[in-house]
Design a protein around this nucleic acid. Structure first.
Lengths: 121, 121
DNA sequence: ATAATATGAAACCATTAGGTGTTATATTTA
DNA sequence: TAAATATAACACCTAATGGTTTCATATTAT
Protein backbone atom coordinates (compact mmCIF):
# COMPACT_ATOMS: atom_id res chain seq x y z
CA UNK A 1 0.00 0.00 0.00
CA UNK A 2 2.66 2.55 1.09
CA UNK A 3 0.14 5.44 1.18
CA UNK A 4 1.89 7.16 -1.78
CA UNK A 5 1.53 10.73 -0.58
CA UNK A 6 2.49 12.09 -3.98
CA UNK A 7 0.65 11.16 -7.12
CA UNK A 8 1.73 11.82 -10.66
CA UNK A 9 -0.31 15.04 -10.98
CA UNK A 10 1.44 16.58 -8.01
CA UNK A 11 4.78 15.29 -9.17
CA UNK A 12 4.63 17.06 -12.50
CA UNK A 13 3.19 20.24 -11.02
CA UNK A 14 6.62 21.62 -10.19
CA UNK A 15 8.69 23.11 -13.04
CA UNK A 16 11.96 21.93 -11.56
CA UNK A 17 10.69 18.38 -11.45
CA UNK A 18 9.52 18.61 -15.04
CA UNK A 19 12.99 19.76 -15.99
CA UNK A 20 14.50 16.82 -14.13
CA UNK A 21 12.26 14.45 -16.07
CA UNK A 22 13.34 16.06 -19.31
CA UNK A 23 16.98 15.63 -18.37
CA UNK A 24 16.49 11.99 -17.49
CA UNK A 25 14.67 11.32 -20.74
CA UNK A 26 17.97 11.65 -22.55
CA UNK A 27 20.12 9.54 -20.27
CA UNK A 28 20.32 8.18 -16.75
CA UNK A 29 22.34 10.34 -14.40
CA UNK A 30 23.77 10.38 -10.89
CA UNK A 31 22.44 12.96 -8.46
CA UNK A 32 25.50 15.16 -8.70
CA UNK A 33 25.19 15.49 -12.45
CA UNK A 34 21.49 16.27 -12.25
CA UNK A 35 22.26 18.94 -9.68
CA UNK A 36 24.85 20.53 -11.96
CA UNK A 37 22.08 21.62 -14.31
CA UNK A 38 20.32 23.66 -11.64
CA UNK A 39 21.16 26.58 -9.40
CA UNK A 40 19.61 25.08 -6.29
CA UNK A 41 21.29 22.83 -3.76
CA UNK A 42 21.85 19.11 -4.12
CA UNK A 43 19.63 18.53 -1.11
CA UNK A 44 16.76 20.29 -2.83
CA UNK A 45 17.23 18.18 -5.94
CA UNK A 46 17.25 15.02 -3.86
CA UNK A 47 13.92 16.00 -2.38
CA UNK A 48 12.48 16.48 -5.83
CA UNK A 49 13.85 13.10 -6.83
CA UNK A 50 12.17 11.51 -3.84
CA UNK A 51 8.83 12.99 -4.88
CA UNK A 52 9.32 11.79 -8.44
CA UNK A 53 10.22 8.34 -7.13
CA UNK A 54 7.12 8.25 -4.95
CA UNK A 55 5.09 8.81 -8.10
CA UNK A 56 7.11 6.10 -9.84
CA UNK A 57 8.29 8.53 -12.47
CA UNK A 58 11.94 7.75 -11.80
CA UNK A 59 13.83 4.74 -10.59
CA UNK A 60 17.27 4.60 -9.00
CA UNK A 61 20.05 2.05 -8.95
CA UNK A 62 23.19 2.38 -6.89
CA UNK A 63 26.40 2.00 -8.81
CA UNK A 64 29.48 2.28 -6.66
CA UNK A 65 29.26 5.52 -4.78
CA UNK A 66 26.86 6.97 -7.31
CA UNK A 67 23.11 6.63 -7.42
CA UNK A 68 21.89 6.60 -10.97
CA UNK A 69 18.41 7.87 -11.67
CA UNK A 70 16.47 6.93 -14.77
CA UNK A 71 13.15 7.97 -16.21
CA UNK A 72 10.13 5.73 -15.81
CA UNK A 73 7.45 7.36 -17.90
CA UNK A 74 4.63 4.84 -17.53
CA UNK A 75 2.72 6.71 -14.80
CA UNK A 76 2.26 9.59 -17.23
CA UNK A 77 -0.32 7.39 -18.85
CA UNK A 78 -2.68 8.25 -16.02
CA UNK A 79 -2.41 11.90 -16.96
CA UNK A 80 -2.94 11.08 -20.59
CA UNK A 81 -6.09 9.16 -19.81
CA UNK A 82 -7.36 11.96 -17.65
CA UNK A 83 -6.74 14.41 -20.46
CA UNK A 84 -8.42 12.24 -23.05
CA UNK A 85 -11.77 12.88 -21.41
CA UNK A 86 -11.40 16.61 -22.02
CA UNK A 87 -10.17 16.39 -25.56
CA UNK A 88 -13.73 16.19 -26.80
CA UNK A 89 -14.36 19.67 -25.40
CA UNK A 90 -11.58 21.68 -26.94
CA UNK A 91 -9.53 21.41 -30.10
CA UNK A 92 -12.10 22.14 -32.79
CA UNK A 93 -15.77 21.68 -33.55
CA UNK A 94 -14.90 18.59 -35.54
CA UNK A 95 -13.81 16.69 -32.48
CA UNK A 96 -17.01 17.67 -30.71
CA UNK A 97 -18.98 16.41 -33.67
CA UNK A 98 -16.94 13.24 -33.70
CA UNK A 99 -17.74 12.59 -30.08
CA UNK A 100 -21.37 13.36 -30.70
CA UNK A 101 -21.64 10.93 -33.55
CA UNK A 102 -19.70 8.16 -31.83
CA UNK A 103 -21.15 8.34 -28.35
CA UNK A 104 -24.65 9.58 -29.01
CA UNK A 105 -26.46 12.45 -27.39
CA UNK A 106 -24.60 12.87 -24.10
CA UNK A 107 -23.33 15.94 -22.25
CA UNK A 108 -26.48 17.94 -22.94
CA UNK A 109 -25.52 18.60 -26.53
CA UNK A 110 -29.19 18.23 -27.44
CA UNK A 111 -29.09 18.63 -31.20
CA UNK A 112 -29.56 22.37 -30.94
CA UNK A 113 -27.58 23.01 -34.08
CA UNK A 114 -29.65 20.80 -36.35
CA UNK A 115 -32.83 22.30 -34.97
CA UNK A 116 -31.50 25.73 -35.74
CA UNK A 117 -30.88 24.64 -39.29
CA UNK A 118 -34.44 23.47 -39.71
CA UNK A 119 -35.78 26.68 -38.33
CA UNK A 120 -34.03 28.72 -40.99
CA UNK A 121 -35.66 26.81 -43.83
CA UNK B 1 1.06 40.17 -18.02
CA UNK B 2 -0.71 39.51 -14.66
CA UNK B 3 2.14 37.31 -13.40
CA UNK B 4 -0.19 34.25 -13.38
CA UNK B 5 1.08 32.63 -10.21
CA UNK B 6 -0.70 29.40 -11.03
CA UNK B 7 -0.15 27.56 -14.26
CA UNK B 8 -2.21 24.72 -15.63
CA UNK B 9 0.06 22.02 -14.18
CA UNK B 10 -0.40 23.33 -10.67
CA UNK B 11 -4.10 23.87 -11.24
CA UNK B 12 -4.77 20.24 -12.07
CA UNK B 13 -2.51 18.93 -9.33
CA UNK B 14 -5.26 19.07 -6.73
CA UNK B 15 -7.91 16.30 -6.78
CA UNK B 16 -10.69 18.65 -5.67
CA UNK B 17 -9.94 20.97 -8.56
CA UNK B 18 -9.96 18.06 -10.99
CA UNK B 19 -13.36 17.10 -9.65
CA UNK B 20 -14.60 20.66 -10.14
CA UNK B 21 -13.44 20.56 -13.73
CA UNK B 22 -15.28 17.30 -14.25
CA UNK B 23 -18.45 18.80 -12.83
CA UNK B 24 -18.21 21.83 -15.05
CA UNK B 25 -17.65 19.69 -18.11
CA UNK B 26 -21.29 18.65 -17.94
CA UNK B 27 -22.84 22.04 -17.38
CA UNK B 28 -22.09 25.51 -16.12
CA UNK B 29 -22.91 26.04 -12.47
CA UNK B 30 -23.11 28.73 -9.82
CA UNK B 31 -20.74 28.51 -6.87
CA UNK B 32 -23.40 27.28 -4.47
CA UNK B 33 -24.27 24.34 -6.66
CA UNK B 34 -20.63 23.40 -7.15
CA UNK B 35 -20.16 23.54 -3.40
CA UNK B 36 -23.10 21.19 -2.85
CA UNK B 37 -21.11 18.37 -4.41
CA UNK B 38 -18.33 18.64 -1.84
CA UNK B 39 -18.00 18.36 1.89
CA UNK B 40 -15.74 21.37 2.26
CA UNK B 41 -16.79 24.97 2.74
CA UNK B 42 -17.92 27.34 0.01
CA UNK B 43 -14.96 29.56 0.82
CA UNK B 44 -12.60 26.71 0.06
CA UNK B 45 -14.35 26.00 -3.22
CA UNK B 46 -14.11 29.66 -4.19
CA UNK B 47 -10.37 29.56 -3.64
CA UNK B 48 -10.07 26.54 -5.88
CA UNK B 49 -12.16 28.33 -8.50
CA UNK B 50 -9.82 31.32 -8.33
CA UNK B 51 -6.84 29.08 -8.96
CA UNK B 52 -8.61 27.41 -11.87
CA UNK B 53 -9.49 30.83 -13.25
CA UNK B 54 -5.89 32.00 -12.94
CA UNK B 55 -4.92 29.07 -15.12
CA UNK B 56 -7.76 29.97 -17.52
CA UNK B 57 -9.39 26.60 -17.04
CA UNK B 58 -12.68 28.14 -16.02
CA UNK B 59 -14.48 31.35 -16.81
CA UNK B 60 -17.22 33.08 -14.85
CA UNK B 61 -20.15 35.26 -15.81
CA UNK B 62 -22.37 36.98 -13.31
CA UNK B 63 -26.06 36.35 -13.74
CA UNK B 64 -28.21 38.14 -11.25
CA UNK B 65 -26.96 37.28 -7.83
CA UNK B 66 -25.34 34.11 -9.09
CA UNK B 67 -21.91 33.67 -10.59
CA UNK B 68 -21.91 30.97 -13.19
CA UNK B 69 -18.70 29.11 -13.80
CA UNK B 70 -18.01 27.23 -17.00
CA UNK B 71 -15.22 25.00 -18.19
CA UNK B 72 -12.58 26.37 -20.51
CA UNK B 73 -10.52 23.36 -21.49
CA UNK B 74 -8.11 24.93 -23.96
CA UNK B 75 -5.19 25.35 -21.54
CA UNK B 76 -5.12 21.59 -21.12
CA UNK B 77 -3.55 21.55 -24.51
CA UNK B 78 -0.31 22.67 -22.91
CA UNK B 79 -0.34 19.54 -20.78
CA UNK B 80 -1.14 17.41 -23.76
CA UNK B 81 1.78 18.83 -25.68
CA UNK B 82 4.07 18.32 -22.74
CA UNK B 83 2.94 14.71 -22.51
CA UNK B 84 3.36 14.07 -26.19
CA UNK B 85 7.10 14.36 -25.78
CA UNK B 86 7.11 11.43 -23.37
CA UNK B 87 4.74 9.21 -25.28
CA UNK B 88 7.60 7.92 -27.36
CA UNK B 89 9.15 6.49 -24.20
CA UNK B 90 6.32 4.47 -22.71
CA UNK B 91 3.11 2.74 -23.85
CA UNK B 92 4.31 -0.38 -25.57
CA UNK B 93 7.00 -1.51 -27.93
CA UNK B 94 4.63 -0.88 -30.80
CA UNK B 95 4.48 2.83 -30.17
CA UNK B 96 8.24 2.95 -29.87
CA UNK B 97 8.47 1.15 -33.17
CA UNK B 98 5.91 3.50 -34.67
CA UNK B 99 7.93 6.48 -33.57
CA UNK B 100 11.06 4.85 -34.87
CA UNK B 101 9.57 4.23 -38.27
CA UNK B 102 7.94 7.62 -38.61
CA UNK B 103 10.67 9.82 -37.26
CA UNK B 104 13.78 7.88 -38.10
CA UNK B 105 16.55 6.70 -35.83
CA UNK B 106 16.46 9.20 -32.96
CA UNK B 107 16.84 8.78 -29.19
CA UNK B 108 19.56 6.15 -29.54
CA UNK B 109 17.16 3.37 -30.42
CA UNK B 110 19.75 1.81 -32.69
CA UNK B 111 17.88 -1.20 -34.06
CA UNK B 112 19.00 -3.43 -31.23
CA UNK B 113 15.94 -5.65 -31.45
CA UNK B 114 16.29 -6.58 -35.08
CA UNK B 115 19.94 -7.41 -34.51
CA UNK B 116 18.94 -9.71 -31.68
CA UNK B 117 16.52 -11.47 -33.98
CA UNK B 118 19.24 -12.11 -36.52
CA UNK B 119 21.52 -13.48 -33.86
CA UNK B 120 19.02 -16.16 -32.87
CA UNK B 121 18.77 -17.59 -36.37
C1' DA C 1 46.34 5.42 4.32
C1' DT C 2 44.59 9.87 2.86
C1' DA C 3 42.21 13.01 0.27
C1' DA C 4 38.51 13.77 -2.69
C1' DT C 5 33.93 12.67 -4.19
C1' DA C 6 28.96 11.24 -3.81
C1' DT C 7 25.41 10.60 -1.16
C1' DG C 8 22.48 10.41 3.26
C1' DA C 9 20.30 12.61 6.94
C1' DA C 10 18.99 16.00 10.25
C1' DA C 11 17.54 20.56 11.82
C1' DC C 12 15.79 24.62 10.46
C1' DC C 13 13.16 28.44 7.88
C1' DA C 14 9.82 31.24 4.98
C1' DT C 15 6.03 30.88 2.06
C1' DT C 16 2.15 28.72 0.10
C1' DA C 17 -1.85 25.61 0.18
C1' DG C 18 -5.96 24.17 1.78
C1' DG C 19 -8.95 24.72 5.02
C1' DT C 20 -12.00 27.21 8.70
C1' DG C 21 -15.37 30.87 10.58
C1' DT C 22 -17.32 35.58 10.66
C1' DT C 23 -19.11 39.62 8.76
C1' DA C 24 -20.73 42.52 4.92
C1' DT C 25 -23.06 43.39 0.55
C1' DA C 26 -25.98 42.59 -3.45
C1' DT C 27 -30.12 40.49 -5.44
C1' DT C 28 -34.43 38.04 -5.32
C1' DT C 29 -38.76 36.59 -3.53
C1' DA C 30 -42.71 36.73 -0.44
C1' DT D 1 -40.18 46.38 2.72
C1' DA D 2 -38.44 42.29 4.96
C1' DA D 3 -36.54 37.83 4.70
C1' DA D 4 -33.90 34.65 2.22
C1' DT D 5 -30.20 33.62 -0.88
C1' DA D 6 -25.61 34.03 -3.27
C1' DT D 7 -21.51 35.80 -3.16
C1' DA D 8 -17.42 38.70 -1.44
C1' DA D 9 -13.90 39.81 1.73
C1' DC D 10 -11.35 39.13 5.87
C1' DA D 11 -8.73 37.16 9.52
C1' DC D 12 -6.98 33.14 11.06
C1' DC D 13 -4.94 28.24 11.48
C1' DT D 14 -2.12 23.97 10.35
C1' DA D 15 0.48 21.32 7.43
C1' DA D 16 3.03 20.85 3.34
C1' DT D 17 6.52 22.88 -0.11
C1' DG D 18 10.67 24.21 -1.51
C1' DG D 19 14.53 25.71 0.00
C1' DT D 20 18.80 26.22 3.15
C1' DT D 21 23.12 24.68 6.07
C1' DT D 22 25.69 21.38 8.59
C1' DC D 23 27.51 16.98 9.70
C1' DA D 24 28.18 12.00 8.88
C1' DT D 25 29.18 8.00 6.01
C1' DA D 26 30.53 5.26 2.02
C1' DT D 27 33.41 4.73 -2.01
C1' DT D 28 37.14 5.79 -5.09
C1' DA D 29 41.58 7.57 -6.57
C1' DT D 30 46.41 8.99 -5.32
Amino acid sequence: MTAAKHDVFQAIADPTRREVLRLLSNEEMPISKITSYFSISRTAIVKHLHILAEADLVQAKKQGREKLYMLQPEPLNEVKEWLSYYEQFWNNKLSVLKHFVEEGETQGLSLVESKEKKRTT
